[in-house]
Computed example of a mutant assay.
Amino acid sequence: MFGLEMPPITPEFWAILGTLILLEGLLSADNALVLAVMVRHLKGDLQRKALAYGIGGAVVLRIIGVLLASYILEYWWLRAFGAAYLAYLAISHFVKNKSAEDEADDKSKGRGFWATVVLLNLTDLAFSVDSILAGVALIPRGMPREQGLTIVVIGGIIGLILMRIAATVFLKLLNKYPAFDHVAYALVGWIAVKLGLETLEAAHEVFPAVPYWHMPTPVFWGVMAAIGIIGSFLATRQPAMSDEAAEAKADAVVHEIDDTVADASDGRIDGR
């Protein structure tokens, strides 16, 4: 059921993988930042304990998400739900006009330990779904399911790695240029359009009365490139802080995550 097959190494393959790395990096950095912010109201060791549950949940939910991607690739009606969710995600981001850090702080205030743990894992679930659906949506509709799933698996693995190895780089980028968050969600919104159109194509094959329009591959990647280039230009025009401040803030989050993982591995997370 979860057979994998390496797709042909083409320019489109590298474009998909490059986009996944960018989105995984930004979403993973957001995820790490949100987890750290959501435990700030807890006292002492409870912060690390809750964060450990949150990090563990992120890993488990990402693995489950990759496995479920097989079904999303196979059934067009599940892709319809995916397109709707990604569209909602992008629209709500711009409508709320609130940073992930501020939103996480508002949600977690006044919550007890277990309520915070539940909220952390619900947040992990949302980030996992965002990431996996974006990966699924980037897969060309005509690509064999085994090859598409391989790309999604690669993206999922990259996401897990980026949660730590490249977390400092992407956190620093988001700290200094918060508008890169907007670029990421603009890309997600355009990916939702692609997935929605492909869903209509698939539905048309089952129900001929359903109207559809086939988006040419160059059009999709041309708009993706335009969003990336123009968005990056606009995002970098107004830095929110200096390089030093952005790096210090990123290092603080990553250091907290590292300490939590180390404590969990040697049994000290519970104060032993």
Results as ranks from 00 to 15, higher is better:
residue 30 D to L: 08
residue 113 F to W: 04
residue 232 S to N: 00
residue 37 V to F: 10
residue 272 R to M: 12
residue 158 I to F: 15
residue 166 A to M: 11
residue 194 K to E: 06
residue 69 A to M: 08
residue 134 A to S: 15
residue 125 L to I: 00
residue 260 T to A: 08
residue 192 A to D: 11
residue 224 M to S: 12
residue 203 A to H: 06
residue 197 L to F: 13
residue 249 K to R: 15
residue 149 L to F: 11
residue 101 E to I: 14
residue 147 Q to C: 07
residue 20 L to C: 12
residue 238 Q to G: 02
residue 173 L to W: 13
residue 38 M to D: 08
residue 80 A to W: 04
residue 61 L to A: 01
residue 79 R to M: 12
residue 94 F to V: 08
residue 71 Y to A: 15
residue 270 D to L: 15
residue 2 F to K: 01
residue 12 E to Y: 03
residue 12 E to M: 04
residue 209 A to W: 11
residue 226 A to W: 02
residue 225 A to E: 03
residue 51 L to G: 07
residue 77 W to P: 04
residue 171 L to P: 09
residue 155 G to H: 05
residue 140 P to S: 03
residue 4 L to K: 10
residue 268 R to K: 14
residue 73 L to H: 06
residue 218 P to I: 08
residue 145 R to D: 14
residue 4 L to Y: 11
residue 101 E to W: 14
residue 4 L to N: 03
residue 163 M to K: 10
residue 157 I to A: 15
residue 189 G to W: 11
residue 167 A to S: 13
residue 78 L to W: 09
residue 264 A to I: 10
residue 88 Y to W: 14
residue 237 R to M: 13
residue 7 P to S: 10
residue 59 V to R: 00
residue 66 V to Y: 10
residue 123 T to G: 09
residue 61 L to H: 04
residue 137 A to Q: 05
residue 191 I to A: 09
residue 193 V to E: 06
residue 168 T to I: 14
residue 13 F to V: 01
